[in-house]
Amino acid sequence: MTTAISVSGLVKTFGQTRALDGLDLTVRTGEVHGFLGPNGSGKSTTIRVLLGLLRADAGEVRLLGGDPWADATSLHRRLAYVPGDVSLWPNLSGGEVIDLLGRLRGGLNQTRRDELLERFDLDPTKKGRTYSKGNRQKVALVAALSSDVELLVLDEPTSGLDPLMESVFQECVTEERERGRTVLLSSHILAEVETLCERVSIIRLGRTVETGTLAELRHLTRTSIAAELAGPPTGLAEHPGVHDLKIDGNQARFDVDTQQLDAVLRELTRVGVRSLTSQPPTLEELFLRHYEGDLAGNGRHAAGVRS
């Protein structure tokens, strides 16, 4: 499997602020890669370096086999970008912007353009200044999705969309994946990332703290168990993999380190299981586990960092 994006040890400073501090990121060709991190953690800065809009201070950055700074123009013909905050020209209609951006990327699929306008329920005749945030985002999305490109770089593309449009967006990205396109999706919306992404990278303070498939990441965290047993549960409280144990008669609720799941289930079956529900860890729990510890520190550090 080839690599669409590979970043290692990326550093970018703005004056005194170190926005990216040795960031690593690998996106394989053909995958939808989730790029997670709180506000100000450096997601947009990373994307702008990948697009050659900002110059890396240190580190290795490769995009579609090229150098994003030196080969910007030729690489850009092979990708489409949706910024997190879309600004449009006030006196150009949405349709004009879609066509212009498509042409500047080297071509636009007209059938797909019209189909997407329909699906996103977007009026292309309105002028840029009259669109709402969500509709400005739709303009950029339609322009990106109707271009025939290898790589889609989407920076929080759904932050202004309603739930209906959000699900249209998810359908579209799934279709792109089926067509074999690579997608880098920066997002806050964890359900969206869980649905769409095979692999995710979580960054914090300009550094990658976790990367892998969702299954791999889940493996590192805890599963919630609720069980009704034949008798009073024993041996659970002492087990090193069990956390937050609550016992109510024959009922037990607890979280278990996923690696210890097998051993703990043996303890339960020893007593006898009447019913059992288990919940795999959500991405949200994964995400919060990485940030809870340094919410305060993050706020201090991230002051002045461009998001």
Binding site: E96, V97, T125
Partner: peptide, 19 residues
């Protein structure tokens, strides 16, 4: 009032100079 614009861009609107 804001008048609606064209649904599609004119053919010549295809370069930075045209924009």
């Amino acid at each position: 009032a804001q008048r609606p614009g064209p649904e599609r861009a004119a053919r010549r609107l295809s370069s930075p100079l045209a924009l």
